[in-house]
Design a protein around this nucleic acid. Structure first.
Lengths: 159, 159
DNA sequence: GTAGATATACTCGGATAAGACGTGTCCGAGTATCCCTGG
DNA sequence: CCAGGGATACTCGGACACGTCTTATCCGAGTATATCTAC
């Protein structure tokens, strides 16, 4: 089980957009240059974020991306789901209904308990991610290194 | 992010081995026939489980697989880790240390907060899986459908 | 009848191909801007 | 001087190759068993 690398890019990029603020749009190329990432591929991730309503895009000159909502209303879960999709990691394919003994299980018509436990674990993971917003991240970073927000904002606004 | 299909097979198969008990070894072919799965590929998953110390294998006639420990000491986390490997789903590649502004972040030498939040969420998931053992699964199934354990055991012991 | 050696058949185990998905890239559609022209 | 129209250059957006991991399969190494033979 491996999470897409784009999730890490999306999280850091959304945080950068939070520093810049909603007044100014930032191009995918400049967002990519900040971390030396492939510009076109980061653009693809940004498209996914836009489709999910996390960021909004503006075409043409002076165009680019900006956060679509307040940072306090954007959870890490929103960003992860936007990139990875809404599908669950563990997918029950109901193998107990296949094979010679399927008649045994079908009699009860009960749900798959294996699937239930796996779902509960995944739910705990989702809850934790949904409890953290971009604002939480901003506060944590600011407390740890107060200079970062200002310097990052200046870097994106320059030029 | 998608979990390997083999995890579902391994979970159900380990549960079946728990029904059969440690006295008798069951071949990979018979375990696969129970769910109509590819025998050779299930064998590969069983090898991973054996390597992780979850099941033990016996070669030769009357050989096969059986649980290596008491079902109460085998957690769902053990089985998932055996198949998926010990790697974390979210892997921080430290992109903040790449690109033109890397000097800004390096100054603080603080840990990556994005990575920290993602780790915390994944830890919640692992905790939930580690809290459930094969015995818990057995109890849940027995309460839901009391006939299943006996009939499954008989199916594997027959022939 | 019993013990030992041997042949046997059955098991796992790792090495080997095919397919699916994530990764990376490209060029075209669309638009806000800027400039030029006319009033 | 001001307003309108058009050319322009820049942006995103979806369609197109490449690499890597999961999936699936095969045949060989090793062993417990059963048989046969000798005592």
């Amino acid at each position: 089980m491996r999470m897409s690398e784009g999730v890490e890019w999306a999280l850091h990029t959304c945080l950068n957009l939070a520093w810049v603020g909603p007044e100014r749009a930032v191009t995918a190329a400049r967002l990519a240059a900040f971390y030396d990432l492939p510009p076109a591929y980061l653009g693809k991730q940004l498209q996914a974020l836009a489709h999910a309503g996390v960021v909004s895009s503006s075409p043409g000159p002076r165009g680019g991306f900006r956060l679509a909502r307040e940072p306090g209303t954007i959870t890490l879960m929103d960003i992860v789901t936007a990139i990875e999709g809404p599908e669950k990691a563990f997918r029950c394919s109901e193998i107990r209904h296949r094979g010679p003994q399927s008649q045994i299980s079908q009699a009860g018509d009960h749900p798959c308990h294996v699937s239930r436990y796996m779902r509960e674990a995944e739910l705990a993971w989702r809850r934790q991610l949904a409890a953290r917003t971009l604002t939480d991240l901003q506060h944590t970073v600011t407390r740890s290194s107060p200079g970062i927000p200002e310097r990052t904002r200046e870097w994106f606004l320059a030029q």
